[in-house]
Amino acid sequence: MQGRRARQLGIQALLAAALLAALWWLLAVTSANMAERGIRSGFDFLTEPAGFAIGESLLAFESTDSALWALAAGLANTLRVALPAIAASTLLGTLIGLGRLSPNLLLRGLCAAYVETLRNLPLLLQLLAWYFVVTDLLPLGSRALQLAPHVFLSKSGLAMPWLGGESGLLDLPLRGEMNIVGGATLTPEFLALFLGLSLYTAAYVAETVRAGIQAVPRGQSEAALALGLTRVQLFRLVLLPQALRSIVPPLTNQHLSLTKNASLAVAIGYPDLVSVANTTLNQTGRAAECIALIMAVYLILSLITAWLSAWLERRSGRWAERS
């Protein structure tokens, strides 16, 4: 037993060393070739002023800020759309997944139709469709719809009061010369991306949830019903704890895909990490560096998500044992 373990560890260490060596070789050859061709390389551009503006940003950003800060603003924008979309898609997907198991024929049919339609159309197409529907239908910025005091809806997005601003505590959106000025705005790009990602991923989540619940042997629900549990009790005490074990790992995959799919933002003008990094790449010409940075950031995001999911899995396992 001991010997086998040591051997396995040895193989893993060798593999890791080989991988690192290959990576190092790749880097060394690339930078040597780039130097030979007179291509500047390095990450020094990150501290230089970015020089371009970002249309919407959670972090305060100006064109004189550094390229690194621009990328951080891009990352913040990615998370700003990915996190709410993860929550929304999980919630909606769970409801639809349950709907597919409903005894009601109409509900079951509708949910099945939703899943089949959304899942089988390319996401990029859906995003563009949402985006152009949103921008075509809404009124111009100069003729914004007033939904409530200081809440405006127009092609420029949904403007609403927000904390901060120049005046003091509350920043109120007001009608400007050609646009709504002030407040916080959810732009059409953000709304389309959020909608598109949530609705698309919800279809996959629904299938995951349905499969997870159906994976619990039938005998379990029959036994529970025979014991006199109500349907709600059956679901809460018997089905869910067992189903969660098979739902969480594939659900994590969906969350990972959603975060990565958020990079399609660039097609509809939302300044996410990839969009900002693309612009930086263009201004500085540092292609290898920018792409390496994007890959590193997505890798880190994915690893964090996977780690969180593993933690949740352990917890849900314990929960199942306790109940």
């Binding site: 249309g55 111009l140 420029s156 003008g269 969009s275 612009t279």
Partner: peptide, 18 residues
């Protein structure tokens, strides 16, 4: 700035009044 990757998308957005 509202930055689009594709020319067609940027044009469409502008002429739709975005």
């Amino acid at each position: 700035p509202v930055v689009f990757e594709k020319f067609e998308a940027s044009i469409k957005a502008f002429f739709s009044g975005r």
